Amino acid sequence: MDVTPLIPEGQQVIETYGDGGFRVSGTHWTGSVLIMPQRTLSWAPEAFAQITLESLSPLINAEDRVQVLLLGCGKGAQLPSKDFRTSLREHGIVLEAMDTGAAARTYNVLMAEERAVAAALIAVQ
């Protein structure tokens, strides 16, 4: 499924998702990914239960700060705990959890609007 919008040059864009991976700015990634405006990283969690603040440390500690984190929970949306959301908020990050497809599409829209957004996406088949 192609979800490519017009994105400012040099920014990461999610071109496709599914089949256990993603294509981001022309590069194929197998497994889950952490996408920030300037770079994409492999991300260890394969399921919602594996997501921790530590797994998000590359984003939390990034030089380029983001304000919104879109969490792609896999095939269905799940709600992270209040403590988890509060901890991210203490770092200046608002968390929006949804299924991975919705998170990928929303990331591209917000990136096209030049918002300070990142996405943590669990791969789906």
Rank of each mutant, 00 (worst) to 15 (best):
M1H: 14
D2T: 11
D2V: 06
V3Q: 13
V3P: 09
T4F: 13
P5S: 08
L6R: 10
P8N: 05
P8V: 03
E9V: 13
E9Q: 15
G10R: 07
G10N: 04
G10C: 06
Q12D: 03
E15K: 14
T16C: 06
T16L: 08
T16A: 08
G18P: 00
G20L: 00
G21K: 06
G21A: 07
R23L: 08
V24D: 02
S25H: 05
T27C: 08
H28N: 15
H28W: 13
H28C: 13
W29E: 11
G31W: 06
G31P: 03
G31T: 01
S32F: 05
S32N: 02
V33G: 01
V33M: 00
V33I: 10
L34N: 03
I35R: 03
M36Q: 02
M36Y: 00
P37L: 08
R39G: 05
T40W: 03
T40G: 10
L41M: 15
L41K: 10
W43K: 02
A44F: 09
A44G: 13
A44M: 09
P45I: 01
F48D: 08
I51P: 04
I51H: 03
T52C: 12
T52A: 02
T52R: 05
L53T: 12
S55Q: 14
S55G: 14
S55N: 13
L56R: 06
S57F: 09
I60R: 10
I60S: 09
I60E: 10
I60K: 03
E63L: 01
D64I: 15
D64P: 09
R65P: 02
V66L: 05
Q67R: 14
Q67I: 11
Q67L: 09
V68Y: 11
L70C: 14
L70N: 06
G72W: 01
G72S: 05
C73N: 03
G76K: 10
A77Y: 07
Q78P: 01
L79Y: 03
P80A: 03
S81F: 01
K82P: 11
F84W: 01
F84E: 00
R85H: 12
T86N: 15
S87E: 15
L88R: 01
E90R: 08
E90Q: 14
H91E: 15
H91L: 15
G92S: 12
G92N: 02
G92Y: 08
G92C: 07
I93N: 05
I93F: 02
I93W: 02
I93E: 04
I93G: 01
I93M: 02
V94Y: 14
V94Q: 14
V94S: 15
E96A: 06
M98T: 02
M98H: 02
M98Y: 04
D99R: 10
D99L: 11
D99C: 12
T100L: 01
T100R: 00
T100F: 00
A102P: 07
A102Y: 08
A103V: 02
A104E: 01
A104P: 08
A104F: 04
A104C: 15
T106K: 05
T106Q: 12
T106A: 06
Y107F: 10
Y107N: 04
N108V: 10
M111I: 09
M111G: 05
M111R: 13
A112M: 02
E113R: 03
R115K: 05
R115L: 02
A116L: 09
A116Q: 05
V117H: 10
V117P: 15
A118C: 07
A119W: 04
A119Y: 11
A120C: 14
L121D: 10
A123E: 11
V124K: 00
Q125E: 15
